[in-house]
Measured scan of single mutants.
Amino acid sequence: MWEAGIQHIELEKGSKGLGFSILDYQDPIDPASTVIIIRSLVPGGIAEKDGRLLPGDRLMFVNDVNLENSSLEEAVEALKGAPSGTVRIGVAKPLP
């Protein structure tokens, strides 16, 4: 389960991407759907250096692409398709 509020994070995407990987996970509230979760951070990558994204965070959007009900493929496309420079990411943090 995740917090209702969405944290807005801006990262600078370079030639090596944003520095994290994702996975799809069965939604605990709606078993028929999936949620997109941050799986891991690349050591020394943009996301790890920034410090705000953590494994277990739920990915909600990338720039103007809503990922609340997306497939893993759609989420990967949104991340890979984001141009270099500032990328806006929304995440919901896990409940304590």
Score class of each variant (00 low, 15 high):
Pro96Met: 04
Gly14Tyr: 12
Val91Cys: 11
Asp24Gln: 08
Arg39Met: 03
Val65Cys: 12
Ala75Glu: 00
Gly5Pro: 07
Leu11Ser: 00
Ser33Thr: 12
Lys93Glu: 03
Asp64Leu: 05
Leu72Phe: 14
Leu54Val: 09
Ile29Leu: 06
Ser21His: 13
Ala32Trp: 06
Pro94Phe: 02
Leu72Tyr: 11
Ile36Gly: 01
Ser21Tyr: 07
Leu72Trp: 04
Ser40Leu: 04
Ile37Leu: 06
Glu3Lys: 13
Glu3His: 03
Val87Pro: 00
Glu77Gln: 12
Met60Ser: 04
Lys49Asn: 14
Glu10Val: 07
Asp57His: 10
Leu79Phe: 07
Gly19Lys: 01
Asn63Gln: 05
Arg58Glu: 02
Thr86Trp: 10
Lys80Asp: 10
Ile22His: 01
Arg39Val: 03
Glu74Cys: 06
Leu54Ser: 10
Leu72His: 09
Val62Glu: 00
Ala92Glu: 13
Ile9Trp: 02
Leu41Lys: 02
Glu48Asp: 06
Gly19Pro: 02
Leu18Gln: 01
Gly17His: 04
Val62Ala: 04
Ile6Phe: 09
Ala75Ile: 01
Leu54Arg: 09
Val76Pro: 00
Gly19Gln: 04
Ala78Val: 12
Leu59Asp: 00
Leu95Met: 14
Met60Lys: 07
Asp24Leu: 04
Ala32Leu: 08
Gly90Ser: 09
Asp50Lys: 03
Asp27Arg: 05
Thr34Glu: 15
Lys49Ala: 11
Ile89Val: 09
Gln7Leu: 06
Glu68Pro: 02
Ala92Tyr: 06
Pro96Ile: 03
Pro55Gly: 15
Ala92Asn: 08
Ile89Gln: 00
Gln26His: 12
Gly85Pro: 09
Met1Ala: 04
Gly5Asp: 09
Leu95Trp: 06
Ser70His: 10
Ile29Arg: 13
Val87Glu: 00
Phe20Val: 07
Lys80Arg: 08
Leu67Cys: 14
Pro83Met: 11
Ile38Gln: 01
Pro31Ile: 08
Glu68Gly: 06
Glu3Leu: 04
Thr34Leu: 10
Glu10Leu: 11
Gly14Trp: 04
Glu12Ala: 08
Lys13Asn: 13
Ser15Lys: 14
Val65Trp: 08
Ser70Thr: 14
Gly56Cys: 03
Ile9Lys: 01
Gly17Ala: 05
Asp57Glu: 04
Arg88Ala: 06
Leu79Thr: 04
Ile9Arg: 01
Val35Glu: 13
Pro31Gln: 10
Ile29Ala: 14
Ser84Ala: 15
Asp64Ile: 01
Asp30Ile: 10
Glu12Lys: 12
Ala82His: 03
Asp30Asn: 14
Arg58Thr: 01
Leu18Tyr: 04
Glu48His: 09
Ile46His: 12
Gly90Lys: 04
Asp57Cys: 05
Gly17Lys: 03
Gly5Glu: 15
Gly5His: 07
Ala92Thr: 15
Pro55Ala: 15
Glu73Val: 06
Lys93Cys: 04
Glu12Asp: 09
Met60Asn: 03
Ala47Lys: 01
Ala32Gln: 05
Ala47Gly: 04
Lys13Trp: 03
Ile6Glu: 03
Gln26Leu: 07
Ala4Ser: 13
Leu67Gln: 02
Val35Asp: 09
Glu3Phe: 13
Gly51Glu: 04
Gly51Phe: 01
Asp27Leu: 08
Gly51Pro: 02
His8Cys: 12
Ser70Ala: 08
Ser33Trp: 05
Phe61Arg: 09
Ile46Asp: 11
Ile36Tyr: 04
Leu41Phe: 04
Met60Val: 10
Ala78Cys: 09
Met60Cys: 05
Lys13Tyr: 07
Met1Leu: 03
Leu67Ile: 13
Asp30Gly: 14
Ile9Ser: 02
Ala32Ile: 13
Leu23Gln: 15
Pro28Asp: 14
Ala82Phe: 04
Val91Met: 07
Ile22Asp: 00
Leu41Met: 14
Leu41Gly: 00
Leu79Asp: 00
Ser40Met: 13
Arg88His: 13
Lys93Pro: 05
Gly19Val: 00
Lys16Trp: 05
Ser71Ile: 06
Leu72Ala: 15
Pro94Gln: 15
Ile46Thr: 13
Asp24Val: 03
Leu53Asp: 01
Asp57Phe: 13
Gln7Asp: 11
Ser71Met: 07
Glu77Phe: 13
Pro43Ser: 10
Pro31Phe: 07
Asn63His: 03
Lys16Phe: 06
Ile38Asn: 01
Lys13Thr: 12
Ser84Tyr: 07
Ser33Ala: 14
Asn66Pro: 07
Lys13Glu: 04
Glu68Ala: 13
Ala92Asp: 03
Glu10Gly: 06
Gly45Trp: 01
Leu53Val: 15
His8Leu: 12
Asp64Lys: 13
Pro31Trp: 05
Ile37Tyr: 09
Glu10Trp: 06
Lys93Phe: 02
Asp57Trp: 04
Arg88Trp: 06
Ser70Trp: 06
Leu11Trp: 02
Phe61His: 10
Val91Trp: 03
Trp2Ala: 13
Ala75Asp: 00
Ile36Trp: 02
Gly81Glu: 14
Asp50Leu: 02
Leu59Ile: 05
Ser71Trp: 03
Ser71Lys: 10
Ser84Asn: 09
Leu95Lys: 12
Gly51Ile: 01
Glu74Leu: 14
Tyr25Gly: 13
Leu23Pro: 00
Ile37Gln: 15
Tyr25Arg: 15
Ile29Pro: 13
Val42Ala: 14
Glu73Arg: 05
Asp30Phe: 06
Lys80Asn: 14
Lys49Ile: 08
Gly19Trp: 00
Glu3Gly: 02
Gly19Asn: 01
Gly17Met: 03
Glu10Asp: 15
Leu53Gly: 00
Val42His: 15
Asp57Met: 15
Ile38Leu: 06
Ala75Met: 02
Val91Leu: 10
Asn69Thr: 14
Gly51Asp: 03
Met1Cys: 03
Arg88Leu: 13
Ser70Gly: 13
Met1Ile: 11
Val87Lys: 00
Thr86Met: 09
Val76Cys: 11
Leu79Lys: 01
His8Met: 13
Val42Pro: 01
Asp27Ala: 08
Asp27His: 09
Gln26Trp: 07
Val91Lys: 05
Leu72Arg: 13
Arg88Met: 07
Gly14Arg: 09
Leu53Ser: 02
Leu41Ala: 02
Gly44Asn: 11
Val91Gly: 01
Asn69Ile: 09
Leu95Gln: 12
Glu48Lys: 07
Gly14Glu: 09
Glu74Phe: 06
Ala92Ser: 09
Trp2Gln: 07
Leu67Thr: 10
Glu77Lys: 06
Gly85Asn: 07
Glu10Tyr: 08
Ser15Leu: 14
Ile89Ala: 01
Ala47Tyr: 00
Ile22Ala: 04
Lys93Ala: 04
Leu67Trp: 02
Lys13Ser: 12
Val35Ser: 15
Pro43Arg: 06
Lys93Gly: 04
Ile37Gly: 05
Ser21Glu: 07
Lys49Tyr: 08
Ser84Glu: 05
Gly81Cys: 12
Ser15Phe: 07
Asn69His: 11
Leu18Met: 10
Val76Thr: 09
Ala4Glu: 06
Glu3Ala: 05
Ala78Lys: 07
Glu48Pro: 00
Pro31Val: 07
Gly90Cys: 03
Ala4Trp: 03
Ser21Lys: 05
Ala82Lys: 04
Ile46Glu: 12
Leu18Gly: 00
Gly14Ile: 08
Glu3Asp: 08
Thr86Cys: 12
Glu10Ala: 06
Asp50Ile: 03
Ile89Arg: 00
Pro31Ser: 13
Leu23Ile: 14
Thr86Tyr: 07
Ile46Asn: 15
Leu72Gly: 07
His8Ile: 12
Arg58Lys: 11
Ile6Lys: 03
Ile46Cys: 06
Gln26Val: 08
Asn63Cys: 03
Gly5Tyr: 11
Glu10Pro: 08
Gly5Phe: 13
Gln7Arg: 07
Ser71Gly: 11
Ile9Asn: 01
Pro55Cys: 13
Leu67Ser: 01
Lys16Gln: 05
Arg39Trp: 03
Ala75Lys: 01
Gly90Asp: 03
Leu18Ile: 06
Glu68Cys: 08
Leu59His: 00
Tyr25Ser: 15
Asp27Tyr: 05
Val65Pro: 00
Glu10Lys: 11
Asp27Gly: 10
Val65Leu: 11
Val42Ser: 13
Gly45Ile: 01
Val91His: 08
Leu53Ile: 15
Val65Thr: 13
Pro94Ser: 11
Gly85Glu: 04
Leu41Ile: 10
Gln26Asp: 12
Gly45Asn: 02
Val91Arg: 05
Val42Glu: 14
